[in-house]
Design a protein around this nucleic acid. Structure first.
Length: 566
RNA sequence: GUACCCUUAGCUCAGCUGGAUAGAGUGUCUGACUACGAAUCAGAAGGUCGGGGGUUCGAAUCCCUCAGGGUACGCCA
């Protein structure tokens, strides 16, 4: 595909030697409106070099760029040099590229040979998968797909919370009040009940906490009974989680969670001691980080057992050895910012230069209208319920508007789940939000169903118009403002994917496909597509095809399906 | 108490590494279905970018400060 920015860099570089190609590339901007041009080069920085007013420099530059095949017009506007792209070249290059690459349009090999670890979702065993888990799960999945699409060699890790004192609690609670059959029938809820009951009782009776600690120690010592219970609880919980993962169409490469690293920690503690990083304080062992403006990182408890900082350090070291990662990414809530800063600093202090490749990708908090989520107090909204409710609402809408649709259940699932996922990936990760049923179940405006609807509509046009990708198309017929606007958005799509990867922000893609859908709907409402004139029809269908492909790819990267009918 | 994050239209949010007149959606009001799919489109109204300083040719964007909200701070993860 033609790279218009590079063409501008070449033109400017030909006239101005004092700026490097990179500097020129970086200063190229998009004007506020396309009436003013497709790209703009501001001359402010040159005014110091040439000791002239920027608007004079801009004028002088323009006079040198008259005849050029890639830009139909170059003009100055005050201090800016504005470039107007050659529209037929733009449309032709983007359409030919989409035609050639199809559903691979926007992919690349920039990540070739680089291993990227994406740790996300990571629910706690025996606790419900609630609305609070949706963010890490959905953001992580999207990032995983984005990196993969850009050629990175990815590993999706579900770092299950399957170890720790809480397990001692569960085992103790099960031994006191548990019933295997009851739990088998409704694992998460029953285990949650045990968990809540144990916490309530433990507040009244301190001795229970000792029992929990006892059972956790037994588990670590590989006591057969404890081990068997642990395996069983882990298995039935995972089975429940997989219901949600199936609905979301998410798979992991490994479920190596906390337990997996439990035997890798003593070595780390020893290493910290050998490197003189460990300090004793009030019976516990820690790494002092005062020098770096952070509270100390606790490594070993009074009783000798380890903490999750130790576990994360051990996991990172293991992963470096085993995978030799290029980036080791953690999609974990912003509440853990300090924790990540601490342990990554400790890894750095241990002398591992790859500490900088461990990246925490934080996101904001979800709360309920009446306050914070709390598993212990049973104040949660289950993710499964959210998804099911969205699917039900969608099903009703389909019954109303498109009752003859084939496989309504399947489509309702794709659209309902898609709506939830889309909403989750629509804004910057860091923003907190309050969960609202109204918002989750609204399918109008900038929503997943809107984009999916546009896709289905485009598909229907292609079918009715008997679109054939082999047809030769006269691109010069696509010359209206809307058609060019659409082409520009399609043209920018590959760059948007790269930006999304660089910033670990899937919403760049969400916003781009919304823009494409909006522009296409505008086009659809203003220009007939299935018309008599064969040449014109073919060209408009080609544009429709481009829109359909890019929307589908974009949705796919977000983990959302694109049904052909809905 | 200390550190970090957030604050843009009634509501929910965009605004690319500072750049040309601050944009969407939603809600409100108005208009378009015997129409290629109305989960759509067109239009109107709606903003001292939390307040105040500073840096700069230029600040919603960078720095300082104040206010409001949130999160985290040694034996949970």
């Amino acid at each position: 595909m033609l790279n218009f920015r590079n063409k501008i860099v070449e033109l400017i570089k030909g006239e101005v030697d004092s700026l490097s190609r990179e500097e020129i590339e970086e200063s190229i901007e998009t004007p506020p409106s396309y009436d003013m041009g497709d790209y703009a080069f501001p001359a402010f920085k040159l005014s110091k070099v040439f000791k002239k007013a920027p608007n004079i420099i801009a004028e002088e530059l323009v006079s040198k760029f008259d005849e050029n095949p890639y830009f139909e017009k170059v003009e100055s506007a005050g201090p800016y040099v504005n470039f107007f792209i050659n529209k037929s070249k733009l449309i032709e290059t983007v359409m030919e590229e989409i035609k050639e690459k199809g559903n691979k349009y926007g992919s690349s090999d920039i990540g070739e040979g680089k291993k990227v670890i994406m740790e996300y979702s990571s629910p706690n065993i025996a606790k419900p998968f609630h609305i609070g888990h949706i963010r890490t799960t959905v953001i992580g999945n999207a990032l995983h797909k984005i990196y993969k699409f850009l050629g990175f060699d990815t590993v999706a890790i579900n770092h299950l919370g399957d170890y720790g004192t809480q397990f001692g609690m569960l085992i103790a609670a099960y031994k006191k009040w548990g019933d295997r059959e009851v739990i088998e029938n409704d694992p998460i809820n029953e285990l949650l009940k045990l968990y809540i009951k144990f916490n309530e009782e433990a507040e009244k009776n301190e001795a229970l906490k000792d029992e929990a600690r006892y059972w956790f120690r037994e588990l670590e010592e590989k006591n057969e009974e404890a081990l068997e219970l642990w395996k069983w609880i882990r298995k039935i919980s995972l089975k429940e989680f997989n219901k949600v993962y199936d609905m979301l169409n998410i798979e992991f490469d490994t479920y190596a969670g906390e337990s997996f690293y439990s035997d890798k920690m003593p070595k780390v503690i020893k290493e910290l001691e050998d490197k003189n990083l460990l300090k004793e304080s009030e019976g516990a062992h820690l790494v002092d980080l005062e020098e770096y403006g952070m509270p100390p990182a606790l490594i070993k408890k009074k009783d000798g057992s380890s903490l999750y900082t130790t576990r994360d350090i051990a996991a990172a070291i293991y992963r470096k050895d085993y995978y030799d990662f290029y980036k080791n990414i953690y999609v974990v809530a912003s509440q853990q910012n300090l924790h990540f800063k601490q342990w990554i600093k400790v890894v750095e202090l241990m002398g591992y230069e790859w500490a900088k490749d461990c990246i925490h990708v934080p996101f904001g908090m979800v709360s309920l209208e009446d306050g914070t989520l709390s598993t212990r107090r049973g104040k949660v909204i289950f993710l499964e319920d959210v998804l099911n409710k969205a699917v039900e609402s969608t099903f009703k809408i389909i019954e109303e508007r498109n009752p003859d649709l084939d496989n309504k259940e399947e489509v309702a699932k794709q659209v309902g789940v898609g709506a939830v996922v889309f909403q989750e990936l629509f804004n910057q990760r860091i923003k907190d939000y309050v969960f609202s049923w109204d918002r989750t179940l609204s399918f109008e405006g900038e929503t997943g169903p809107y984009v999916q609807y546009t896709h289905a509509r485009a598909n229907s046009l292609l079918e009715k118009g008997k679109f054939n990708i082999e047809d030769n198309v006269d691109y010069t017929l696509l010359d209206s403002d809307i058609e060019i606007d659409i082409s520009r958005l399609l043209y920018n799509f590959p760059q948007v994917i790269v930006d999304a990867m660089k910033k670990n922000e899937p919403y760049f893609i969400t916003r781009q496909i919304v823009e494409i859908a909006k522009m296409f709907n505008k086009f659809y409402n203003s220009s007939p597509i299935l018309i008599e004139d064969e040449e014109l029809r073919k060209s408009r269908l080609m544009l429709t095809y481009g829109v359909k492909e890019v929307i589908k790819t974009g949705l796919g990267l977000l983990g959302i399906e694109a049904p052909n009918r809905m």
